[in-house]
Amino acid sequence: MEKIYILCVDDEPDVLRAVARDLALLEEAFPVETAASADEAKALIGRIQESRDELGLIFCDHVMPGQNGVDLLIELRGRLDLDLMRRVLFTGQAGHEDTVDAINRAGITHYVAKPWEREELLQVARDELTSYIIASGRDPLPYMRYLDQERLAEHVHRRNRTDTGQ
């Protein structure tokens, strides 16, 4: 099974630690990487791609020193190599306009308001990664136990596809 990374970008180390802890259940298949700023995030993305690993999901804070979260997400949305990656805005401080931009220009697939509940965050990650696996066209079976089984089973049913031959 190839691992698919979750990237969390936030300037508060406490938040990063908490997110990594909350998503630890998915770790075997979806390890969490953290970055404290937009620049650090982009460098990390470069490293993940260099080692030919995949990035499936990004949780991104909005208000950060340097490039803000929505601008980072808009930039990443423009990259063809990351077009399947699910983008989640993860903030308590985005204003009305920023939020509109996040939806219209950054094409976020979910909005998580801080403070968050552990179960909620896990559920969002599961839903988004399920969508990612389906969109990526890869064999969903290795990831099934961590994600939304019903949706993935329906996907296998509709596509009639798994890697194991009959």
Partner: peptide, 15 residues
């Protein structure tokens, strides 16, 4: 196909 059938039935029993 046995595969498609199983996948569909899984969506029935998962809940």
């Amino acid at each position: 196909s046995n595969t498609a059938t199983t996948a569909m039935m899984m969506t029935v029993i998962i809940p």
